[in-house]
Every structure is written in C-alpha cells, then in structure tokens.
C-alpha cells in the first residue's frame, strides 16, 4: 500500500512538473476501478463513462491542490462518490420527467442484457438491491481491497459504521441469493 502511495505521489509530482504522460499512467491505473464504482451507482455504462471522464477532468484540474494528507486513491474515490451522488440527485429530479414509454424501453433493454449474460445480470440485480452506503462500502472493501479505516475516510463515517455496513451488505446479498437461487 505504502509503495503504491509513493508511486502515485511520484506520478503526481512528475505531472505537476509538466509530464502529461504521468497523468495518463494514473488514468490507466484507476479509470477501470472508478468506472466500476460509478457504474454501481448509475447502472448504465454510458452515464458511468461520462461521469468517470468528468471525475478525471476534475482531478486533472485540481491535482495541484492535492495536499497529500491521504493517499491519492482515497482522494480519488472521495471525488468519485461525490460526483456519483450528485448524479443520482440530478437523476431523481429528472425521474419525474421520464415518460412511461421510456421506462418500458429501459426495462426491455435491461431484460435483453440479462438474457445475454446471466452472471452479469445477477450481479447487477444484487448491486441494485443494496442500499447505496452498503454497496459502496462493500465494493471498496472487496474490489479495491481497502481497509475499514480508508473506507471510513472516503465515506466520512467511523470504522465501526463501515464494519456494520459490510456485514449488512453480506447478509442482504446472502438473503437475496437464497431467494433467487433457492
């Protein structure tokens, strides 16, 4: 983890000294992770891609303000969460404007995706069934291998709260799988 941190700090330093390739390295290292995390919020690839690019644009423009008090990944995931949450808020406002026909269209698209790839569909269904906080804490812990402490920093909650969110996420998924698979 420490090695990873210093690698990131070096890349940031090089970028701030004018080396654009260092930013490309950072982008390639984290874009897939950020995209997956955003996707768990949006459940839509195009939206997730769009938000991911916005996040990296924000990072690109504000890297000089990064104080190195936390690791780069913690800072990046925090921006990711904030951007995803503001997207969800915006969507909730616009939700009422979507017509019934459009909703049916979305459902048909989702169903066809499920038929093509069952595991992916099941995974999406499970992610959909989780409350936002549980979902994010669990993904950060399992996919990003972050400690409770780091997740707490990103989500602005205590370690104890992270522990409880992950436990509840596991239990919810277990119950969901029990109901789905019998």
């Amino acid at each position: 983890m420490e090695k990873n941190n210093s690698e990131d700090f070096n890349l940031i330093e090089q970028f701030l000294n004018g080396d654009e390739n260092s930013f490309k390295t950072l982008f390639e290292k984290y874009s897939q992770r950020v995209l997956s995390l955003v996707y768990s919020y949006t459940k839509n690839y195009d939206d997730a891609k769009d938000i991911t690019q916005e996040i990296f644009l924000k990072v690109y423009n504000s890297l000089e303000n990064f104080k190195k008090r936390s690791s780069f990944s913690t800072w990046l995931y925090r921006i990711t969460l904030n951007e995803s949450i503001s997207f969800l808020r915006k969507m909730k406002k616009e939700k009422n404007l979507v017509s019934i026909d459009e909703v049916n269209e979305i459902e048909i698209q989702n169903n066809s995706n499920d038929q093509n790839n069952y595991d992916r569909g099941l995974m999406e269904k499970i992610l959909l069934s989780l409350p936002e906080n549980q979902k994010i804490a669990f993904i950060l812990a399992k996919k990003e291998q972050l400690s409770y402490r780091e997740i707490g920093k990103i989500m602005n909650i205590s370690e104890k709260a992270v522990e409880s969110l992950i436990y509840r996420a596991r239990e919810n998924i277990r119950n969901f799988l029990k109901n789905e698979l019998g």
Partner: peptide, 8 residues
Amino acid sequence: NFVKNFNV
C-alpha cells in the same frame, strides 16, 4: 469472490 470479479 462474486463482488471481486465484478467488472465493467
């Protein structure tokens, strides 16, 4: 493992 393998 299920979540670890989840990738977009």
